[in-house]
């Protein structure tokens, strides 16, 4: 379940963002605390320092130097995590309700099929999830694969997911949704291409009520 033990490109990109920020934060923290320590162990050390150094240097220049590249890096890496809307990407409609997940595979050959609490995907292939809820707000989260996104009644949110290798990845509802919030867990099973088709072929057809989610994006 660790966000740092990544198994997909989205989670991996965020994990590297984290490591970069952790190193940066550690350096900054050490620097500031050392300054603070100096003011006690070397009293009067700053008596000759012009006031502007503290305020302009520490208050303005320092954060600017740190934050500008960080923000640009973050926007750049965030941009690539957004769904592309590429029609070639397989689509799965996800409906959350108290307290289960239903997955409808729109593009399955032979009509839409569905599964509950287990999402089947093909390893190495991106899949676009169109997520909504029929009751309260939930959130779809598979820590090892990607960040989370809310399932909101009346709205459809989208998330692009990809697992690099076959395997089973645990997912859970991350937005508090009532007494059985904890139980609202699911699994993402990533299969090899051949096995994937077999699994999808074995799923029951989707009943109409959980077809394509309605609502405004």
């Amino acid at each position: 379940m660790s966000t740092l033990d990544t198994a997909g490109p989205a989670a991996a990109s965020i994990a590297s963002l984290w490591w970069v920020m952790l190193i940066g934060a550690t350096l900054i923290f050490t620097f500031v605390m050392s300054l603070l320590a100096l003011t006690f162990f070397r009293p009067g050390i700053g008596r000759g320092t012009p006031v502007a150094w503290w305020l302009v240097g520490g208050g303005l220049a320092f954060p600017a130097v740190v934050l500008t590249p960080l923000l640009i890096y973050a926007l750049w890496s965030g941009e690539r995590l957004f769904p592309t809307g590429d029609p070639a990407v397989a689509q799965v409609d996800v409906v959350a309700r108290q307290w289960e997940w239903t997955f409808t595979y729109r593009n399955a050959t032979g009509g839409a099929v569905r599964s509950s609490n287990t999402l089947h995907i093909q390893a190495g292939q991106p899949v676009q999830l169109n997520i909504t809820s029929t009751d309260v707000i939930h959130a779809f989260w598979v820590p090892r694969l990607a960040g989370k996104i809310d399932a909101i009644p009346g709205h459809v949110t989208v998330l692009q997911l990809k697992a690099d290798t076959p395997g089973v990845y645990r997912g859970l509802c991350a937005e508090f949704c009532g007494v059985a919030h904890l139980e609202m867990q699911f699994a993402v099973e990533a299969h090899e291409a051949g096995a994937f088709d077999a699994v999808i072929g074995g799923l029951p057809p989707a009943t109409p009520d959980v077809n394509a989610p309605r609502g405004r994006p």
Binding site: T39, G46, G58
Partner: peptide, 19 residues
Amino acid sequence: FPTAVQFFAWIGTLASGRP
């Protein structure tokens, strides 16, 4: 930014005072 300004104003005050 405004947080840092205050933070460094405090540290600067300590550094140039006799804490």
